[in-house]
Design a protein around this nucleic acid. Structure first.
Lengths: 235, 235
DNA sequence: CGGCCACTTGAAAACCTTCAACCTATGTGG
DNA sequence: CCACATAGGTTGAAGGTTTTCAAGTGGCCG
């Protein structure tokens, strides 16, 4: 194909959401009038162009005005998946803002116009309130976690990912040496992961057999961090 | 069972995150010191207690300090699913804040302690910046959408839900009478939904046959809102 | 002790993926 | 203007995984 990989230095103009032709529609059905929010309106991206790339370290946050962005994520095992869409009104680039590094590549699926938002860099304390930054950061992290990384995976991996994820969010490890108690029933886990309870049972059993963890009832012990799995040059 | 459905009026005390025993750990690995954030520390919820209920219309936002909350969602068809977990550092109750109505019921899976945050009601413009509110609202909506509603569904329903979701986010309907162009390949849709491209093809075909929509290539027309499917007394 | 709930296990059925072939539209070069 | 190349789309059949159904175990509490 001949997809243009350029991120043109888009023609940019100061805009005030109050006077923007979209009439604040991008901000959704809010009950509050748009007044003080200002953005930099960037011109249209053509189909195939990239707005940002995974790994890039810009803190720019964009608001999608029109069109559709595909958010593609390169997985550690070399495969790729579509992690989400950027639709009118969505904010894109928050992981870059929160972590200084974009979690996915955003490619225009149609013609897309975006606004670059004027958000102070995290930690600078310059923006209207320090609280704002803080909540933004929180949210970005939460969002990222919610975008379930176990979407297309087989049941075994889904359960494994869930356990790992739970352990990390529960801040296990340091304190308890990987031994902890899972406060969910098999049915709850299944409901969360989109699996039948029986499948959760069998997956846990198999993970036990494989030595990736040990389970007895709701007590789980994680095996040593067997997590690298990254820069392997396999196909 | 004998689960206590009470939300006790918890013993509440003003706290400053800077002097809290958790030492700001709830806020995660942030690069900025916690100074101005204040919360109201609520006492511990016992296992089984509810922090908030789906449909309730309070605008309270909580920060989980310790423990694990299960977020349960009652679906329109009468079934229930686990929509997520509330773990230490997570914000809970933002849908209530954003829409004035909680999207799920939060039940304590372990002993849980939370802080009630002092966030001004949306629209009041009282908080440190109007921008703050706005970003919060945006985020809450985005979060909610990201928590893919098609998690455990069969392929057919997943594709149907995706199309509906796309159409609504693309703000179709009004303008185009349900006729629009899907800017994704079958492979992209599959990758997003965790399905094989062939499965997407077949699902679209079947949805067409069933009259729920019509597809030709990337052109889609939604049928009349055939969405009620709610209060049917079927088993 | 009996009941309930969570958990476990096995076998059959349903579903989805994979593999392979073929079709269609679009754009390129002759 | 046509032939060809390519990416996307479609269809069929085989195989694997997950769900469903059914039965049985174990622990906790009244």
């Amino acid at each position: 194909m001949h997809r243009k990989r350029t991120v043109r230095t888009l023609s940019i103009a100061e805009t005030d959401c109050g006077t923007c032709p979209s009439g604040g529609r991008c901000w959704g059905e809010l009950r509050v009038p748009i007044e003080n929010v200002r953005g930099r309106r960037a011109a249209v991206l053509e189909r195939g162009e990239l707005l940002l790339r995974q790994g890039e370290s810009t803190g720019t946050v964009y608001l999608v005005v029109n069109g559709c962005l595909i958010l593609r994520e390169n997985l550690a095992n070399g495969t790729q998946r579509v992690a989400g869409l950027g639709m009118p009104g969505d904010l894109v680039g928050l992981e870059g803002y929160a972590h200084g590094r974009h979690a996915y590549t955003a490619q225009a699926a149609t013609e897309v116009s975006v606004c670059r938002l004027n958000v102070a860099a995290p930690g600078s304390g310059q923006s209207s309130a320090a609280l704002l930054e803080r909540l933004l950061l929180k949210y970005a992290m939460q969002l990222e976690r919610t975008a379930a990384p176990w979407s297309g995976l087989p049941a075994l991996e889904r359960v494994a990912a869930f356990i790992e994820n739970y352990a990390s969010r529960a801040q296990v490890r340091r304190a308890t040496e990987g031994l902890f108690s899972l406060p969910l029933t098999r049915a709850d886990i299944g409901s969360y992961l989109g699996l039948a309870p029986e499948t959760v049972v069998r997956a846990l059993g198999q993970l036990s057999e494989e030595g990736r963890l040990s389970v007895r009832g709701r007590t789980v012990r994680l095996s040593e961090a067997v997590e690298p799995a990254s820069a392997s040059p396999a196909a």
